[in-house]
């Protein structure tokens, strides 16, 4: 398989602070990569940078082999990189359906449209006229995913889907992932829950203080090594 997204030696700063350093990553079409790491490890910073919302200080981001490092967020989503941001960030003055429709602004055609999203989340049509703030946390997360899908991305990035949600709700949301991947889109997800990530992804990437401490397919990683890499307990 060919890589959709390639990241080479990426550095991202918040002011003086280097939140991501020397990061390399590859994502194949149809692949599912999970980035794990403790709070403050730099996961959100990484995804926001890949989405174009934060500038890279150095390094390169390639999409289908093309350098997109300098593209701002609104142009990157038009090339097929979508981010479901941490904390969902729905537009509060828009209804559910309007939130979804904003995804069309990316101007990409594909299999995801309102009908497809409504089929994926069957409760949504009933609520489409409601203000997005009136939904529960899990429902909001689903709308945020739907909104990103509406851009028909090549790469879908999901930042801490499970944040603040009950386990059942989280499970139901993760159950939709295979459908999404089946449509041919690669998924890069950030998760704090290690076992969740290991169960879903076909490749795990562990971050500690902005650096990769461990990477590989879940089947080849043993529990203790992951824990050490996650918390930075011993040298990995």
């Amino acid at each position: 398989m060919s890589a959709v997204l390639q990241v080479h030696d990426l550095d991202v700063h918040h002011g003086q602070l280097r939140a991501v350093s020397g990061l390399d990553l590859e994502l194949d079409a149809g692949g599912k990569v999970a980035v794990i790491g403790a709070n403050g490890a730099g996961k959100t910073t990484l995804l926001r940078c890949l989405a174009g919302a934060l500038p890279a200080s150095s390094g390169r981001v390639l999409l289908d082999g093309e350098d997109v490092t300098e593209l701002p967020a609104h142009r990157r989503v038009r090339r097929g990189v979508a981010l479901v941001p941490e904390g969902r960030r729905l537009f509060p003055s828009l209804t559910v359906e309007e939130n979804l429709l904003t995804g069309r602004n990316a101007g990409r055609s594909g299999s995801w449209d309102l009908a497809a999203v409504y089929e994926l989340f069957d409760w949504m049509p009933e609520r489409r006229r409601q203000p997005s703030g009136s939904l529960s946390g899990g429902q909001q997360q689903a709308v945020a995913i739907g909104r990103a899908l509406m851009t028909n991305p090549r790469v879908l990035m999901l930042d801490e889907l499970s944040l603040g949600l009950a386990p059942v709700v989280v499970r139901r949301i993760y159950e939709t992932l295979p459908r999404i991947v089946a449509e041919g889109c690669a998924v890069l997800l950030v998760e704090q829950d290690v076992s969740q990530a290991m169960a879903v992804a076909d490749h795990v990437h562990c971050l500690l203080e902005g650096r990769t401490t461990l990477a590989g397919p879940p089947s080849q990683l043993d529990r203790a090594a992951v824990e050490a890499a996650y918390f930075g307990l011993a040298e990995a």
């Binding site: 989503v77 038009r78 509060p92 828009l94 990316a106 851009t151």
Partner: peptide
């Protein structure tokens, strides 16, 4: 309206 709510997130759905 989306940009008025949250310009950063609006950029993520392609708003310039």
């Amino acid at each position: 309206r989306a940009t008025s709510d949250d310009p950063q997130t609006a950029a993520l759905v392609g708003a310039d």
